[in-house]
């Protein structure tokens, strides 16, 4: 099956030559990808978050998008099954990939005549795409509904009361309150809601030695305060 297409040395210039014709087409394609990459890099300001803080165990990291499918897959294996997701499945996939040429040995290369290989690879691609999509969807609902319910007027009113009761001792807002802590009148323009929630859960993320205490609020009460504060702009 060795099929070296006889390289006839003097044919440069006909449409089938590697150099310069094919290289030209190939370069055009690469140039298109290059342009798209630069454009994306320019439009999407690559994020740089706060400096790493090994003490802040409340941080929930997200992997880069191309690892999301795997991240999602791992959610289905808990407790003693974790090792299936972290070890046996990757091992199985890798083994299958390596063995593919030795399993699919029929001489034909026509995809329609290789139903097994076609089905298996299609299943693989569909699984990766579906898991990625699922992860993105679950992620959004996680941030919006479970951790942070949408802000309502009642929440803001209730949040103001809780703030007056528990936080005003130290924090001032709209010219009233204590002076032992930062004025929070414009906290909403400085910080997002998730950050406020994290400060309430664990004040030490602001500073290791802070005098702000952990105030035992229920989840609902915390959401109310954070809703109130995130609207103070």
């Amino acid at each position: 099956m060795m099929n070296r297409d006889a390289p006839s040395a003097t044919q440069a210039g006909n449409p089938g030559s590697f150099y310069p014709n094919h290289l030209f087409v190939e370069s055009l394609a690469a140039l298109a990808v290059f342009a798209a990459t630069v454009l994306a890099a320019y439009v999407w300001q690559v994020p740089l978050e706060e400096m790493a803080d090994p003490g802040d165990t409340t941080y929930v990291p997200r992997p880069e998008w191309y690892f999301l499918f795997y991240f999602q897959l791992l959610k289905y294996f808990e407790g003693p099954l974790v090792v299936v997701g972290t070890f046996f499945l990757p091992l199985l996939t890798l083994t299958l990939l390596i063995l593919l040429p030795f399993l699919d040995t029929s001489p034909t290369t026509d995809i329609r005549k290789r139903p097994c290989a076609a089905a298996l690879s299609l299943a693989g691609v569909v699984a990766v795409v579906a898991l990625t999509a699922l992860s993105v969807v679950e992620d959004e609902s996680h941030v919006d509904k479970i951790v942070l319910p949408p802000i309502t007027e009642e929440q803001i009113t209730a949040g103001r009361e809780i703030f007056n009761k528990f936080c005003m001792l130290c924090h001032a807002i709209d010219g009233k309150g204590g002076f032992m802590a930062p004025d929070l009148t414009q906290i909403g323009s400085r910080a997002n809601r998730a950050y406020i929630e994290r400060v309430i859960i664990n004040p030490q993320i602001v500073s290791q030695t802070t005098i702000m205490s952990v105030i035992p609020l229920s989840d609902a009460e915390r959401h109310e305060v954070s809703a109130f504060l995130s609207r103070k702009k």
């Binding site: 297409d5 006889a6 390289p7 006839s8 040395a9 044919q11 440069a12 449409p15 089938g16 030559s17 590697f18 150099y19 014709n21 094919h22 290289l23 087409v25 394609a29």
Partner: peptide, 16 residues
């Protein structure tokens, strides 16, 4: 010549 001077078969040639 060894590197660059060879034919790209039609089925792999976007021009064809």
């Amino acid at each position: 010549k060894e590197i660059a001077d060879h034919q790209v078969p039609d089925h792999a040639n976007p021009l064809k």
